[in-house]
Design a protein around this nucleic acid. Structure first.
Lengths: 340, 340
DNA sequence: AGAAAATGCGGAAACGATTTCGAATTTTTA
DNA sequence: TAAAAATTCGAAATCGTTTCCGCATTTTCT
């Protein structure tokens, strides 16, 4: 119904063979400029558009990249997506987007859906529940180019893009200490996540470097249920052994902390200093404004897409070598870590 | 390279005709249960996955829906997307996502890309620059099912999903007046946008209803450049004829207002009361917390997807009739509009 | 028991593009 | 001027499905 005209019909209209028309539209050297012009103008006149599925079938590629993220309402992932889309649009690629909602079962379903070649390649950040990675291995074994960013899968030999998680967490912790914090808590999602491992390592090394004790009670695992997190953080902050500094390893836990101190006597930064990974511009309009670790989200998106498309355009010449590319984050100091 | 096994090869392995195997996999009544079982188990064993492009070519449908939004870093659009994806995944549909960045030229390019049938249908919210809608008309004329939400196109006869823009803006304005506001400004994007028209109408009618003057200086047009908006709002709020209440017709302008009063003597809600359209959960952790008009974003996404898929599954039985479906918003009163 | 219907499957066309191979015409070269 | 080479185009195969027909074989009906 929604059908336009086909190549064959266009050829008939022009009294040319389909092969000629195809070549003319693809600017082949075998076709004279005269007929090329004729073909192109007639194609425009009749509003011809090549059927992408016929082409994909024939060429065995879809000009489509699948992007899998764990959540959509997250300024970091949204910015990375924007970055990927910038390059993709520029290079004529389309984006299939999937949200796992941090659910590994959903992630498996989605990954299995992509086993049929609907997408030429995949960019993904794994869910916080992902520890068994057999579904991802299968994808990679199939030969589908796949790139990880942020929450990566070290066991899959491909290129990964991350920020300097260890160093920046180290620096952030040092910053809290410099501002006078004695008892610093580390807020994180699942311990299986690559980012929590690295960021926690940075946090712990900074404490060690300063000869500070590391209280196991300050290793704070959170769930993916917002209310629970707020509740738990609230309990921690009102307990006798409460921390005076917090490093939140993901944005939503930074926000959850603001939520948790609502309607309490706890004041930021006087009683509690907070620094959080976050790409949200609204960090600056919170009161007090929130000191953040800002990841190079847009750049990460750009680099992922660039590398992947380079690989897709020249499958023989470029390989997704097994390496981790690090793009540094920036700490934006705001009021939530002021010492006075 | 990434190729799996084809139907023909699977058939050869089973010593059956491709047609039989196809029917078996599609659970046709013409095939005996015995062979069905054989085929299915062999398909699993050999890891067969049907080529989606061959199928799309043959069936003339792609099981894909395109979603076009004006910005991604926006809690409303992100939630709508989540809603659409909920239903789409459940029904076996894939989502192609495009961000116009409020740029009508980009919107045109994207729309033209969709003219070739890559997607079976479209869900979209137009850019703030969109006034000429010929590109959208062309899409609709082609017979491609299209649904609008939020920022709709009244001139295109199809189903649209919005919230009760007029009424809720009316109520919000009344709320500001009840809280003692005498001079209320209305912050908006382009005047061409369906939502600004309706929301402004509600705002103006509420003023009229209360016999209040409407100061043209309080009809406040904003750009899509964040810094400029903050600057302009700041100027307005520090001018002699400054308002004592603000209704922001989109989320980012609510945030921009918080930004604008940073480092000023202006206090919310004492000097200025603010209510803003917003779906951001962080509205509650701002200080003071922000009174919001919360749109039923998830529901809007669900309804868009449901209707569209119903249409796609039974093209003859359902039509995207020319109507506007309204799903009401909710005003969440918070500190930014407290009267004392 | 003979005819009619139901069951189970195979052959081949079709979807719409690209591309290999070959052939016809024109141009160049000797 | 005849042969070689370039130019320009057409016929047909191909990608991997689905489906329209057709053909046996078996079951059901009278």
């Amino acid at each position: 119904m929604a059908g336009g005209i086909s190549l064959k019909e266009l050829a008939a209209e022009l009294k040319l063979a389909p092969s000629t028309v195809s070549r003319a539209l693809n600017d082949s050297y075998e076709i004279s400029d005269a007929t090329k012009k004729k073909v192109i103008s007639m194609a425009e006149k009749l509003n011809y558009h090549a059927n992408p599925f016929a082409r994909s079938l024939r060429e065995n590629k879809s000009k489509t990249i699948a992007v899998i993220i764990p959540e959509r309402i997250n300024s970091f992932f949204a910015q990375v997506m924007d970055g990927i889309e910038d390059i993709a649009q520029e290079q004529g690629y389309h984006l299939l987007v999937y949200n796992t909602h941090e659910d590994v079962e959903k992630e498996k379903k989605i990954v299995n859906l992509l086993l049929n070649g609907r997408a030429d390649a995949i960019v993904m950040s794994v869910s916080s529940q992902t520890s068994d990675i057999s579904h991802l291995k299968k994808l990679h074994d199939r030969g589908l180019p796949i790139i990880f960013f942020d929450r990566i899968c070290n066991d899959i030999p491909t290129t990964k893009f991350i920020t300097n998680d260890y160093e920046i967490a180290f620096d952030a912790t040092k910053h809290l200490i410099q501002q006078g914090c004695k008892k610093i808590a580390f807020l994180m999602l699942s311990k299986d996540l690559s980012i929590t491992k690295e960021r926690q390592r940075g946090y712990l090394d900074a404490l060690k470097d300063e000869g500070m004790e590391m209280n196991p009670a300050f290793d704070f695992y959170c769930s993916h249920v917002e209310e629970t997190n707020v509740q738990l953080i609230h309990e921690m902050l009102t307990s006798p052994s409460k921390p005076d500094g917090i490093l939140a390893s993901v944005e939503k836990l930074g926000f959850a902390t603001y939520h948790a101190i609502k309607n309490t006597k706890i004041r930021i930064p006087e009683d509690l200093k907070l620094i959080s990974f976050s790409n949200a511009s609204i960090a600056g309009i919170l009161s007090p404004s929130m000191t953040t670790i800002t990841q190079p989200a847009l750049t990460i998106g750009h680099e992922c897409a660039k590398l992947l498309i380079k690989k897709l355009n020249k499958p023989k010449h470029y390989d997704l070598v097994d390496q981790v590319v690090t793009i540094p984050s920036v700490i934006t100091v705001r009021e939530s870590t002021f010492s006075e």
